[in-house]
Computed example of a mutant assay.
Amino acid sequence: MSHASPPPRRPPLLWEQHCCLPLEHRADIGELARCRRPGGSFVSVNAGYAPHRADDVTGLLMSWRARIAADGRLRLAASVEDIDAAARAGQVAVAFDLEDSGPLEGVSTGCATSTTSASARCCRATTPAARRAAAASTTSTKGSPPVVGR
């Protein structure tokens, strides 16, 4: 009869589905490093919502992606493999999401180039009816909160 111990359990992965930074180009992306955990970490950062235009969100993402790529504590994640690699390296895997489909301005093409592949799958899942409803609810951006720090 063997009394071998079971293999050690891997610490759990922290999965933060929707975290927020100030919607500013110069937001402190280093705050995301607080999510580091021994079992690995994945955070999806809100990059905009209905009042924001696609150009605002795209500019914000370009700024954040460059700064995340330059921060050794963080790793951009476009796949499960990226999340696993970040966990092995002790980094936080980072992707982006939208609060709603308003910033898509009724167009779902090009999502993969302006966000991550994981978010692009979500964009493609948006139905034509949902895109029309989002477009109807955001017909005017006058008076909407701006993305600041350009």
Rank of each mutant, 00 (worst) to 15 (best):
A47C: 15
A87K: 04
C20E: 09
C20G: 02
I29P: 03
Y49T: 04
A69D: 08
D100Y: 08
A66R: 14
T126M: 13
N46P: 04
L32V: 05
S140F: 11
P38L: 04
T139L: 15
R124D: 14
R88A: 08
R131D: 00
A70G: 03
S41T: 10
V57C: 00
H52E: 00
A130T: 11
P22D: 03
A54T: 12
G39M: 15
P103Y: 00
G110H: 11
T109P: 01
E31H: 15
A78L: 12
V80W: 11
L21K: 00
L74M: 15
R65Q: 03
V147E: 00
D55K: 10
A135T: 13
T138I: 00
F42L: 14
T113N: 14
R124G: 12
R132E: 07
D28R: 15
D55I: 09
S114D: 04
C19L: 05
A135Q: 13
G30M: 10
D97I: 05
A27E: 04
N46A: 08
L104N: 00
G59N: 03
T115N: 02
A50Q: 06
W15P: 02
P22H: 06
H18R: 07
H52Q: 04
R132H: 07
C122E: 05
L61W: 00
V92W: 06
S44T: 06
A118Y: 01
D71V: 09
D71W: 14
S79L: 09
A66N: 10
D28M: 13
S140G: 07
I83N: 01
R53T: 13
D100H: 07
A69N: 05
E24V: 09
A66V: 10
E99D: 04
A136M: 15
A134R: 06
C35D: 07
P12H: 09
G102C: 11
E31M: 15
G72M: 11
C111I: 04
D28I: 14
T58Y: 07
T141M: 09
S44N: 10
A86H: 02
V147R: 01
R36S: 08
R132A: 11
R26I: 03
L61P: 02
A86F: 04
P51C: 02
H52S: 02
D82A: 05
A95T: 13
A66D: 11
T139V: 14
A85R: 10
V92F: 08
I29R: 05
D97F: 01
S79D: 04
G48V: 06
W15S: 11
V80Q: 08
R124P: 03
G59M: 01
T141C: 10
G90L: 09
S144A: 13
D71T: 10
Y49A: 02
G106N: 06
A85L: 06
T113P: 08
P103V: 02
A93S: 12
S108K: 14
C123W: 02
R34W: 10
A77W: 06
R53I: 07
S114L: 12
F96Y: 09
V45A: 12
P103K: 02
R121G: 02
Q91A: 14
E99F: 06
A54C: 13
R36G: 05
E24T: 08
G72H: 14
D97C: 12
V80R: 13
G39T: 14
D100V: 09
A112F: 03
A33K: 11
V107G: 07
R88S: 08
E105T: 05
Y49M: 05
A69G: 02
